[in-house]
């Protein structure tokens, strides 16, 4: 069948894993400290969550919830969220950081293996990223400076900033 072009539309979901509110966010606190050292004042809170972008043929929300619950989170201290697109949190700057194409992503590779080996899916692609929520009296320029100097290494990372006025 020569002319039969098959188009596979891969579906994707994002699993976001974050510390439950009452738990102390160590990484967030460390970044807050770094921002203060940078000389930028006015940061009230920084929270960090891990992102897993799951891409594959037979993906749906239910499967992703199963993956997150059974494989990715620590039930005591962490919680998760599965979504395709998410509305921004009020009062928070949101920064998403992903690896550039071609940069090795060992955590993503391991996550993929775990999903395949546990028999949930036959084939899947996993990309990891980080999401930072920053609350405080800041302007966009300062946020960009924080990204460039603390959160992102332009050599290997791409990043997006989201904020709601």
């Amino acid at each position: 069948m020569k002319n039969n072009v098959q188009v596979i539309m891969n579906d994707f979901y994002i699993i976001e894993i974050f510390k439950v509110k009452k738990n102390f966010d160590v990484f967030g606190e460390e970044i807050k400290k770094s921002i203060e050292e940078l000389g930028i004042k006015g940061v009230k809170e920084v929270r960090v969550s891990n992102l897993y972008k799951i891409e594959g043929e037979k993906i749906n929300r239910k499967i992703c919830e199963k993956i997150a619950e059974e494989l990715f989170i620590d039930n005591v201290s962490e919680d998760f969220d599965v979504y395709k697109r998410k509305r921004g949190k009020r009062n928070f700057f949101e920064i998403e950081v992903y690896f550039k194409e071609g940069v090795a992503d060992p955590v993503g590779d391991t996550a993929k293996r775990v999903i395949v080996e546990s028999g949930i899916l036959k084939d899947v692609s996993v990309k990891t990223g980080k999401k930072y929520y920053i609350r405080g009296k800041l302007n966009l320029k300062e946020i960009e400076e924080i990204c460039e100097k603390i959160l992102v290494n332009n050599l290997i990372h791409n990043y997006f900033i989201k904020w709601k006025k």
Binding site: K100, G102, V103, A104, D105, P106, D109, T110, I156
Partner: peptide
């Protein structure tokens, strides 16, 4: 970019 290595 290609000079960067990331370990596993």
């Amino acid at each position: 970019t290609s000079v960067v290595q990331i370990g596993n």
